[in-house]
């Protein structure tokens, strides 16, 4: 995965509370290979497209927002299914940052594992940002992971919190498996202990 340090891009406001991962990518696309050329269209498919494939009246189909790479969402973004394809669908649309008051726990982890920055701001701050973006379509927001700051909407600038382990993971872009394999000795020692402590399980 690519390292994430800083990203600047057009931001789109999505006023959808509890936007679950079934919305982000409907289940019927989950078996598609990642290199499917249609993959970008799976993202929010039922909100963006009619059954005949034509575009619906939806903000992501409007001029400046088509190229958005930052999403400013509402509470509980990415709740529901654990499908990591939801992150894949966002990445295929060049989305690099999602800002929301709260996230589904599994989806949040999936974002971090794949190098997409999830930013938690307060509900008021998110509402303020969405409002600004609606009044100033095409605004570019910058998410700076080092400083943990989102800026670019006029004078608005927000600091966000992220755990140091998630931050490191994103900043280095290191593969988790490689990282863990450095703990090989600990894993072996644990397995040895486990043979006696959990002897009933073997």
């Amino acid at each position: 995965m690519d390292a994430f340090t800083l990203h600047t891009g057009i931001a789109v406001p999505l006023d959808i509370p509890n936007c679950d991962t079934d919305q982000i990518i409907p289940a019927r696309f989950l078996r598609k290979p990642v290199d499917d050329p249609q993959y970008p269209r799976f993202f929010l498919a039922d909100l963006r497209f009619d059954t005949d494939g034509s575009e619906k009246d939806f903000i992501l189909n409007e001029a400046p927002f088509r190229n958005a790479s930052v999403i400013v969402a509402d509470r509980n973004w990415g709740c529901g299914s654990s499908r990591e394809n939801a992150v894949t669908a966002m990445l295929k649309n060049n989305v690099a940052v999602v800002i929301a008051p709260s996230f589904g726990d599994i989806h949040y982890n999936n974002c971090v594992k794949r190098g997409l920055l999830p930013v938690r701001l307060s509900a008021e701050e998110c509402a303020e940002l969405r409002d600004y973006l609606k009044r100033n379509p095409g605004t570019q927001l910058t998410a700076d992971l080092d400083d943990q700051v989102v800026s670019g909407a006029g004078n608005l600038s927000y600091r966000f919190e992220i755990s140091s382990s998630d931050k490191q993971r994103l900043l280095t872009g290191l593969d988790d498996v490689d990282l863990t394999l450095r703990y090989q000795g600990d894993i072996e020692a644990f397995e040895k202990r486990r043979e006696t402590e959990f002897d009933w399980l073997s």
């Binding site: 654990s82 499908r83 990591e84 394809n85 992150v87 599994i106 989806h107 982890n109 999936n110 594992k113 794949r114 988790d176 498996v177 863990t180 394999l181 703990y183 894993i187 397995e191």
Partner: peptide, 15 residues
């Protein structure tokens, strides 16, 4: 419940 990257992580490391 875990995501696909985590499934792979468990396959290789069991952790």
């Amino acid at each position: 419940g875990i995501g696909a990257s985590e499934v792979e992580h468990v396959l290789v490391t069991q952790t």
